[in-house]
Computed example of a mutant assay.
Amino acid sequence: MRAFDVVTRIAFGLASAVLMILACALIVYAGSGVWDSFRTAERNIGATALEAVGYTVIAIAVFDVGKYLLEEEAIRGREMRNAGEARRSLTKFISTIIIAVLLEALVTVFEAGKEDPRLMVYPTMLLVSGCLLIVGLGVYQRLSISAETKVRDPEEE
């Protein structure tokens, strides 16, 4: 069983490294697009900068997923933790995803607003999804904290 644990940790470590490298590549790609738009007059600098923001937001979310895998699965493994630590870790991870979704929605609102108002359905759905994620995270926090309290002090019922 120990060999399987080592192989699993190596696999998660490699996967997280690949995700982090790809996230850095996305940021470099976004930066090179902006740089090229400054050098040539053919490209619209505003549209390219907005596209670069979208790529950067996605890169941050991908990088955070890689970091989460590295910290939680490769380094720490599946060792037992208390419920509070697991809740904080999951909250931090989901918060990053929520920020990425909402920033992508914001970028997409600006892009769609300039092109055609009928394209606003996708950004609106992203905003609704981000809001639902926030509400879901709040419900999760509330339920997990009350469950932790009951586990810690069962005489309080």
Rank of each mutant, 00 (worst) to 15 (best):
M1P: 05
L143Q: 13
E104I: 08
C131R: 02
M80P: 03
L137E: 06
G66E: 02
S144Q: 12
I98W: 00
A49F: 12
Y122G: 03
T8L: 13
G113W: 12
G138W: 07
D153F: 05
E79I: 11
V139D: 01
G113V: 06
T48M: 09
E85N: 10
L127C: 08
L137W: 01
A41I: 08
A41K: 11
F63P: 00
L22P: 04
A112P: 02
S144I: 05
V18Y: 10
S89D: 07
I27D: 01
V18K: 04
A100I: 07
E148K: 07
Y68T: 12
E111I: 06
E79C: 09
L133Q: 02
I10W: 05
E111P: 02
F38K: 11
G31N: 15
A74Q: 05
L106I: 12
A112I: 02
L70Q: 07
E72F: 01
V107M: 02
V34Q: 10
A47E: 09
M80V: 13
V65T: 14
E51D: 11
G54K: 08
A11F: 12
T8A: 14
I97A: 08
R2M: 10
F12A: 11
R76W: 07
I10L: 15
T96D: 14
I98L: 14
S144R: 06
N82Q: 11
S16C: 04
V53D: 03
A61R: 02
G84M: 11
R88S: 11
M20R: 08
V139R: 07
M1S: 11
V139H: 03
L22C: 07
E72I: 04
R87P: 00
M120L: 15
E79K: 11
L70G: 04
E157S: 06
V65K: 02
A30R: 00
V101F: 03
D36Y: 01
T124N: 05
E42R: 11
I21N: 03
G46C: 04
I45L: 15
R39G: 15
I75M: 14
L106F: 05
A41H: 13
I99E: 01
V121Q: 02
P123L: 05
A59K: 03
V151C: 13
I134E: 00
A83E: 12
K92W: 04
E156V: 14
M120C: 03
